[in-house]
Design a protein around this nucleic acid. Sequence first.
DNA 1: GCGATCAACTGATACGTATTGAGCCGGGAG
DNA 2: CTCCCGGCTCAATACGTATCAGTTGATCGC
Lengths: 351, 351
Amino acid sequence: MSRRVGPRRPTQVEIAQRAGVSQATVSLVLSERADTTVSEETRRRVEQAIDDLGYAVNPAARALRGMTVKTIGVYTFESVFPVDQRDFYHPFLLGVEEEAARLGYDLLLFTSANTTRQGVYAKGRNALLKADGCVLLGRHISRDDLARLAREGFPFVFIGRRNIEGVDLSYVAPDYVAPTAGLVEELVALGHRRILLLRQTDGAEPGEDRHSGFLQGARAAGLSEDDLVVEYSSGAQDVDTGRVAGWIRAGITAVLVEPSEDNATGSALADAAEVAGVRIPDDLSVAFLGSAPGPTATRIWTSFELPRVEIGRSAVQMLVRLLDGDADPPLQLLVPCTDIRGNSISRAVRR
Amino acid sequence: MSRRVGPRRPTQVEIAQRAGVSQATVSLVLSERADTTVSEETRRRVEQAIDDLGYAVNPAARALRGMTVKTIGVYTFESVFPVDQRDFYHPFLLGVEEEAARLGYDLLLFTSANTTRQGVYAKGRNALLKADGCVLLGRHISRDDLARLAREGFPFVFIGRRNIEGVDLSYVAPDYVAPTAGLVEELVALGHRRILLLRQTDGAEPGEDRHSGFLQGARAAGLSEDDLVVEYSSGAQDVDTGRVAGWIRAGITAVLVEPSEDNATGSALADAAEVAGVRIPDDLSVAFLGSAPGPTATRIWTSFELPRVEIGRSAVQMLVRLLDGDADPPLQLLVPCTDIRGNSISRAVRR
DNA sequence: GCGATCAACTGATACGTATTGAGCCGGGAG
DNA sequence: CTCCCGGCTCAATACGTATCAGTTGATCGC
């Protein structure tokens, strides 16, 4: 950490001297608080001196006094200016930037932490303190870091749901439960009985939520537990022709797929079905519990869309509420998803 | 500016008490300088205390002492997470982020300044001081702001060339002179004599540089001054069929176009030529002195490409050199462009 | 044996601000 | 006349750190 360069900037003391007042008075003039009493004449003289000397408040000194600096940190493992526009995280950041700008906050990107893959507590010291508070983003943020941050009382909001024992976590996340339940009910209304949920093996909260929605929708639609099948996949290679054929033999007529990070599971399923001679949706209805693989000429996947920009915005709003002391953690918000009506589900065939 | 929330964090004083040493010693242990003398035993005890209490250095206090905080500001009028991936500024930011991360700096985005369109000196106070130094970006940054920043000794690097009387400005910019000169020489080699430079009316440095390159190339190729024509355009509406026809009548066989912000001048020229029955390149060779309109099925414009990512990287490198005191402003760097060989120029016709 | 040198540590200080409690002054009430 | 009060200003202080100028002992050279 080297020494700052350049000439010294004017301070309140110098303003005070030039205006013939005390430093305290200068500070009073600058803090445009309502309950302050400075005569019009004094105020004028101070402001004149400020203009003359080109004074600018020193943010470090302000921060040291315990003031906020109007800076929101953004911590993410992924690159922040992603090369791929279609990057999953990009829309979140869009919302974060938009809302931060609207509320008058600057954005501090912890890019250095990305290279030194050390997590929040790089070098054993918290890197986030340069900001008033922080929006955390990304699958790869360690639960331990989150827990420690929360315990230390650092104000932050996580994007995505996380449940950590004994820790009060603030987060904004998409609601997977309701739309998943809705899809199950819709499938049942279309005559489906044996429905498969294909989960990711990571065991993370999004998977749990989808599972809850699955069960909840089934209950609401009056399905018996026996009709529900849950299987796991750890990636595209797990979904092959044999497996799809097996589903058909087992009488399964509809599959709900939890998307994998790269959406490869979805594509693999489509390919396997084609090879197996299983037509979608005629022989098998398929829907994605989240973002689907991109649409093709003939196929629009039934799925739902996460309101990512909106989530980014909400996270900033929530963080600012925490910073303003208008609320205490945990603040938790689930944002509804938008259904995408595709052509990958249809009325169940009787076999 | 409100008060910071949350519980107080441990300080060096508390570390010192727990380790049975003075605060100064704690600071010495933390500053991993070579010329420091702390016994192994003491260092161990201090580090133990740091771990126990979860100490993290207070960046505000450090900054107040005049230290740098490893933060580079990014100031731009445009949105920083542009919705349009093809945004002109995006690649610069990519380079900035990449290099900042590599050098261990975090990035502070002055997004709040974008909404309050007040320039650098929003509210009469310099908004940039939260960072150690700053990369400035964008056509719309006022010359006065740049001049004032430079005069005040704030470390910054501008992306793009700016010449301001009596001000030492550090910048990184694409070199328009050399490739423009090269294009002129190439055209002359193809038999062209009367060559037109179509400048933007803004009178900014990029236009000056292209003009210089134009003259320089002509001189190198042995063209007489009489063969050179310079015209101006303030936008697409200025380039119509009549104008193009006029060029042909005047014996002009090649046009070098300074691209406008939205590249509309280029498209307008193509359209006007088509309507006028002027074939490119058979009747008229056309090249762009910078980014061309997107390629079409039959047409790849001869032009050259700005190394924008590279420029972003260089700007950060330059700024860090300034911050480290390894150099004094002005530091100025011109980065070479890449020629794009299209099919919009050809051998001159004899008429 | 004595000053000099050195390693290891510490006390004191400054950085620039926001805030607090007190002081001053002039005027109105009692 | 005294007392008090409101309006205005100021001196003093704390925030947490890095660094400088010592201050110890201990060791060394002669």
